[in-house]
Nucleic acid binder design. Structure first.
Lengths: 188, 188
DNA sequence: GGTGGCATGTAACCGGTTACATGATTAT
DNA sequence: ATAATCATGTAACCGGTTACATGCCACC
């Protein structure tokens, strides 16, 4: 049933609203001031996206009155929205995700612990690792073939992509180790 | 004069056509089979993009006949297209580029040597390094502030971004060193 | 009384995604 | 014959970008 016609921005908004109910303006400030700068803070993107989510029953906006300022509409995640958000987070990670939608994967991981729980975070990380391993492998092979035909700048640009993927794999392993250490010594 | 209404895909196409004249189908194969998988190989994206470039006089298509197959239209970069491509490649790198358009920057670098020359490659790398240094700096600061308020998965996700930026900075320095070594010992 | 920040919105434009369609040639 | 591959295209849809518009409040 989980309707999959929600953009990356839509999920980012739902994740934020799960942490804390907020207005469109609040969200814009978060996007422009924190490390979520990769998302647009333009009103032309955010307000329509909030309306769409509301129309789908995933969030609900209530007008706050009497605060002295102009009317402010605060949005909250609905139970349906929470279910949708959870479903999105626990999706398995494909190679296609790694190649073309890495920021979205990172967003899913960033939200995972608060929204679904630490077990989901570990699950996501292992899924990422599983997708990354053969990907790095294939990149290394492709790199060998490339060296003989491409320009120096082409080869070095490819090297950046390879290093990025290798670094990501190392990061995933470090993250898994961190979580599993946490699980043993930490709170039940 | 350089018209800046060209999408990232448009420049990718021009870069490929500079290396070697090709048909839309050729380009689709390149996108789907090489490390340029981050670009879409869908005909609905590529053929209209080629038409747009042709309408702007940046590329020119000629129909190849008599090869036995169906008609094949091979596109070539025009002088105007080459100038546009060069202008795009040597643009300075901004922080905004790093945060939101990194793949495009990498594409510019990959093409730089063949299209403009090694001096342009070095210029791009130094521009990247200059943009990256303060960016990594600010990320580190933000990371400190984040640790106390975010969830573990949030903190670790941020760490991935930080490592990525640090790795990129190291890569840029390695690339600069490679080019400068090359310049001394290599061919005039 | 004007500037700047708070807060929300809309409309035009553009380009990528998806899906469908077509026709020719080569291999089985 | 017919399936697969070569090769090109189009149309609907959707959402992000850009730019503009509005109105309230606080402060100087």
């Amino acid at each position: 049933m989980t309707s999959r016609n929600i953009s990356s921005l839509g999920y980012a908004l739902m994740g934020l609203l799960h942490q804390k109910p907020a207005s469109g303006y609040d969200v814009r400030k978060i996007f422009s001031s924190t490390s979520m700068k990769s998302y647009s803070d333009s009103p032309g993107a955010i307000y329509p996206a909030l309306r769409r989510l509301e129309k789908q029953g995933l969030i609900r906006g209530t007008v706050e009155e009497g605060t002295g300022l102009r009317r402010r509409q605060v949005f909250r995640l609905t139970p349906k929205g929470l279910a949708e958000l959870k479903g999105w987070i626990v999706l398995p990670v494909t190679r296609e995700d790694i190649v073309r939608r890495l920021p979205e994967i990172m967003l899913r991981f960033a939200f995972s612990e608060q929204v679904v729980g630490a077990h989901a975070s570990i699950g996501l990380l292992k899924s990422m690792e599983a997708a990354l391993k053969p990907y790095v492998q294939s990149l290394r092979q492709e790199g060998q073939a490339l060296k003989s035909v491409a320009s120096l700048s082409g080869t070095i640009a490819f090297e950046a992509g390879l290093r990025g993927a290798e670094g990501l794999l190392q990061w995933a392993r470090f993250a898994i180790a961190t979580y599993e250490k946490e699980g043993k010594g930490g709170p039940s």
